[in-house]
Design a protein around this nucleic acid. Structure first.
Length: 290
DNA sequence: GAAGCGTGGAT
DNA sequence: TATCCAAGCTT
């Protein structure tokens, strides 16, 4: 098995993008917020929202002091608004359980709302410099191609962490760069649709390239159709409530033109169950409680 | 493990 | 135009 670390680390030193969360002294809270926003949302869309968020709430305590509605409203059109709710809850938990300091320990990070295997290790590694495997979709794609000779990675699995751990250099700082470099290669060179193998620093040892770029199939889960989905109605409803905030709206004013009223009611109920909407006496609003 | 969960740009 | 894709998490 080729050692990918030396060429990837060297490539990263020369080719890493300058991103806000990579600036020296950006801080663990900034890294944490950036990772929440980057969960399934592209870098280019995140950057302006991240800067606005951190200007408004420079610390977890500042966010925790406001109602969840403020977080959901500030989240705007980033998508997956449950993340805004979870980030707010995490800020409350950090304030109550950790004295307002973002924890460094992976298990403590994992215990926070909205933080899973990826985000916990990303914070521990990129904010604190500790040695852990950080595995996102970019990493999984790079390893699937370079080491397994596959065109696309399989669905996420627990074994991914051990696989990446085995590739990390011993030193903490080099391991952190290796994690970042593998993600960066997947994000900018070894991309999903049209990889740029001519500029790839590990093309010479890539198993997929050596095999002639075979179509090995794609076991990734397909996204469900969005048009006409519950997700789309939820988006319509929540956008209306954001635009009206802080004023409430009558439930009858939420997606009134949606062709399927049963589906619309189901979507509203699910938003309420998620805690993204509060409803009472025929009125609906962003969540003020907790 | 599989399903559900937004939004918008690229192809 | 339709599909793909994006630094995932919770249930």
């Amino acid at each position: 098995m080729p050692d990918l670390a030396p060429p990837l680390i060297a490539w990263y030193r020369d080719n890493a993008r300058e991103l806000p969360w990579r600036a020296p002294g950006f801080g663990a809270w900034g890294v944490l917020v950036s990772e929440f926003m980057l969960q399934q949302t592209p870098v280019a869309r995140v950057i302006p929202h991240l800067e606005a968020w951190l200007t408004r709430w420079p610390t977890p305590a500042a966010l925790a002091a406001e109602p969840p509605a403020a977080a959901v409203h500030q989240w705007a059109n980033l998508g997956y608004p449950r993340r805004a709710l979870w980030l707010h809850r995490a800020a409350v938990e950090i304030t109550e359980r950790h004295g307002g300091e973002v924890p460094r320990d992976v298990d403590e990070l994992l215990a926070l709302t909205g933080i899973g295997d990826y985000t916990a290790r990303a914070v521990a590694v990129f904010a604190y410099g500790d040695r852990h495997p950080v595995v996102d979709t970019n990493t999984r794609r790079v390893l699937a191609r370079a080491l397994d000779g596959r065109a696309q990675p399989g669905p996420p699995a627990r074994t991914d962490l051990a696989a990446m751990d085995g590739l990390l250099p011993r030193a903490d700082d080099e391991a952190a760069v290796m994690n970042a470099a593998t993600m960066e290669l997947g994000a900018t060179v070894c991309v999903a649709r049209t990889p740029r193998c001519e500029i790839c620093p590990v093309s010479g040892v890539c198993a997929w390239r050596a095999a002639g770029f075979p179509d090995t199939g794609d076991r990734r889960r397909k996204q469900a159709r969005y048009e006409g989905s519950d997700r789309q109605v939820r988006g319509v409803i929540l956008r209306a409530l954001r635009d009206a905030a802080p004023e409430p709206l009558l439930e009858l004013q939420l997606a009134p033109d949606w062709p399927d009223p049963v589906q619309r009611d189901r979507a509203l109920d699910s938003l309420i169950a998620d805690g993204l909407v509060e409803a009472a006496d025929g009125w609906a609003r962003l969540p003020t409680g907790r």
